[in-house]
Simulated scan of single mutants.
Amino acid sequence: MKYLICFGLLLNSILCHGQRREKGDIELTPIIGYSTSYQLHSFLFGSTSVSGIQFGVYGNYFLNNRWSLRSGLLYQKMGTNNVDFSIFTDEYSERTNYISVPLTVNYHFGTKWKWYVNYGIGVGFLTNAEANYNDGNGFVDINNLANSTQFGIIGAIGYEFKVSPKFLLIVENSNLIGLTDTTEQRNGKNFYMSFNLGAVFKI
């Protein structure tokens, strides 16, 4: 019986240690999510959102058991739909796609540090841009008018589910507010929300 107790204590200590993060730990997190996007003026005047699929991978480097730095590569679709609201009408719709690089600081909290929040900046590199002027031509290429780089502020909150000592699942809500106009011809900044699922692999 005492051997079973000793074995149980040893196993418990190993599992508990596996859940803890320490300075220098690295995690990789592939994610996929559903996104909605507006530009600020279209959001205020009731435009429908531009939806899409976000996917990519995060890398997380731990400074200690509560703080970490997170970056990665993400594919993101953003844009705005035309607006027809009372005295304000805008028949312009836009779609912009980016490869984005977030850089955030994460704080882990709660029971066994399963919750986390993060904040920081993001840089998006344009891959394609198109617009619909409602002139009968549908969406047309506007890559020559679009800004090639987007800067924004990022904030997110998430929760981790333990599957094994070195494998976790996460659910998170991530948001971006653009600081730069998407095109040279219009003053529009993206407002982007995504709800993501991810798998955490400890290296």
Rank of each mutant, 00 (worst) to 15 (best):
K2D: 14
I31D: 01
W115D: 05
G120Q: 01
S164C: 08
S86D: 12
G155R: 01
V83G: 13
I26V: 10
S49H: 10
V101T: 04
I153T: 04
G124N: 08
R186D: 04
P102F: 01
H17T: 14
M193L: 14
K112A: 14
S35Q: 09
N118T: 03
L28Y: 00
T29I: 15
Y133C: 07
H17Q: 15
T80R: 15
Q76T: 11
I87N: 14
N81F: 11
M193D: 12
A129E: 02
G136H: 05
M1C: 06
N106W: 04
N187M: 01
F139D: 03
V140T: 13
G18N: 03
S49R: 09
S47N: 09
L69F: 14
F88K: 08
F167H: 10
V50H: 05
G72K: 02
N106T: 04
F85E: 14
F88G: 07
F7V: 14
P102G: 01
F139I: 03
L168D: 11
Y61P: 03
L197W: 09
L73H: 07
E22V: 11
N137S: 09
R21P: 00
E184C: 09
Y34D: 11
F55K: 03
G138D: 05
G138Y: 00
L176H: 08
Q76I: 11
S37I: 04
T48C: 12
I121E: 07
Y116A: 05
I5Y: 10
G198Q: 00
T29N: 13
F151R: 12
T149M: 01
D25P: 01
P30G: 04
R95V: 07
L69M: 15
L28I: 09
Y38D: 11
C6F: 13
T36S: 13
Y3D: 14
I87G: 11
D25K: 00
A129V: 07
L73R: 08
E130H: 11
S47E: 09
N143V: 01
W115G: 07
I121Y: 08
S47M: 09
P102Q: 03
